[in-house]
Design a protein around this nucleic acid. Sequence first.
DNA 1: CTTGGCACTCGGATGCGCTGAGTGCCAGGG
DNA 2: CCCTGGCACTCAGCGCATCCGAGTGCCAAG
Lengths: 340, 340
Amino acid sequence: MLDDRKLDVLRAIVEDYVNTQEPVGSKTLVERHRLGVSSATVRNDMAALEEDGYIAQPHTSAGRIPTDKGYRLFVDNLTRIKPLSGAEKRAIATFLEGAVGLDDVVHRSVRLLAQLTRQIAIVQYPTLARSTVRHVEIVTLTDRRVLLVIITSAGRVEQRVVEISGPLPEELLADVRARLNTSAVGQRLADAANRVSVLPESFHVDDRPVVTSLVAAFAEAVADEHVGERVAIGGTANLVRFGEDFESSMRPLLEALEEHVVLLRLLGEATSPSTVTVRIGHEVDHESLAAASVVTTGYGPGEEALATLGIVGPIRMDYPGSMAAVHAVARYVSRILSDA
Amino acid sequence: MLDDRKLDVLRAIVEDYVNTQEPVGSKTLVERHRLGVSSATVRNDMAALEEDGYIAQPHTSAGRIPTDKGYRLFVDNLTRIKPLSGAEKRAIATFLEGAVGLDDVVHRSVRLLAQLTRQIAIVQYPTLARSTVRHVEIVTLTDRRVLLVIITSAGRVEQRVVEISGPLPEELLADVRARLNTSAVGQRLADAANRVSVLPESFHVDDRPVVTSLVAAFAEAVADEHVGERVAIGGTANLVRFGEDFESSMRPLLEALEEHVVLLRLLGEATSPSTVTVRIGHEVDHESLAAASVVTTGYGPGEEALATLGIVGPIRMDYPGSMAAVHAVARYVSRILSDA
DNA sequence: CTTGGCACTCGGATGCGCTGAGTGCCAGGG
DNA sequence: CCCTGGCACTCAGCGCATCCGAGTGCCAAG
């Protein structure tokens, strides 16, 4: 059904359309690409491609534009991730190298991705659930308030102010701190919460209320999805290049992008750092983003993915380029994280 | 020169223009407002106002729109901050009440401000420089790496990974931790850095390198402006309502908003929580924002302002409403912070 | 000083015809 | 059987002329 030349034509259409943003006709196509056949032949191929739903005409007597299905075929079969230039690689390396702390790494990654792809970039903070506890600290603030600080293996610091029923003597504090650490350090967060939950029993009856509050706060800090799954977003300026009709298309998009819950759904399940996921148009399960595509991949120290990062852009985007950038940034960030 | 009626006319023009976004003419003006005079009279007043530079016509035979100078007069003399509705007040209170930790407070404030004003909201994190040290913690990560955590009075946690030349024995660590805390706790950050800087001398010669690294990291964490002055931004979705011509006006605006340095300049010097600062059009000292206005105020526990928050919007904005919202949110945030 | 009246301006909406890129189809040739 | 040049047809976008009405400035009378 689809011989090689038809696939070539489809590829040419996608590439041209992504460049020019305009429907591409048979004549301009043969002019710009060395297809080796006449425009009439291309027209026939186009008719076939349209028949099969890979391309469409916005209106009669206009050029063709790729459909979602067409892009899908293009991404799956007609392109390999194109390697970044040396300059780009160096830019990534030096830009990320200077990062201080997890927050900084995430923010730099977002800006980097946005600049490289000229799309909207989204980076999820390393998920708490998969990382382990590195240290637990308790700090007295006032008589009735202590600050609980949890440091995770991803370098992330989670903090909670805890109200307690009465003053916490120094010795008890030291004891609780020590036991919390013995139980929790090295454990995955979920496991740590479990192990810690039995701690109050081992304390003197008088001390249990305080310890219980602390343990509860620990569990809450560790379990809380909303706090636990944060995302950074950047490159919103690039949004302007997306839509010409903007009351209809940009508004909901911008609104969606402010909802971090939506962003998390967009990023989806973390995949291994070596695979790049592409969702095109309707494949993105969010109505107001039906006119957008999402390119994501997982990242994290080692091979397992702690979190996801990626970009959102118009369906007509440079997929090979975006995929390459996402892939590269994920790799560099992963490396930085495993160093830290 | 400007009698009361002329001022009434100016006020009416500003209000109408803000509502309708269209140049307002003499006839529609007398229809919509009870000015008690005929359109011809209003026309004469308008001519006078234009003469003095408070209003202008986009083109001959069109209505008038306020100039920056006109808005300035309006804001200064023709309006008082209008009180928020009870419902709005309650919304603010409940929305901010549920916040957990400083990060959460800041993020909630941004969203709240954006929703209330339907503009772009900016909230600066409490500046480190003005807050004091509450606690310093040192955590061993590996033989050659420790994590330095500084908790400030504003509830903010600053962290730095420090490379050290060799392993740090437990007793030394405890000693350093204790002395760091004695020197720094309760001090303003800048002072703390100074006092801490002499610490290495009091240690045994062998231990000094390690202590010096830690002290340096402390100073860096405290001094670093870029890390120290962070801002959160939200409500970018409202940007769509700003400009009809958007390649020219929105693009630079969005770009400026991504530059946190620019945002900090926009927010400007923190003012007392009781005064609301309004900068209109050209008064905003950033070229790409010449078509925007900024409404800001300071906030912080107690009377002194730790940081600034505010909104950015089109010059034609509802100043009384925006000022009220900014004022109210700042007050509530301040209260929350002094509780925490 | 205010007001009704009047002539004038001009941006924006409406309507119309032309143009050219693009299409589908067909008959002839390798 | 597939490719190709040719041809008639379509139609979005443009340039241009026209019209409309909100808005203005000015003036003479109250």
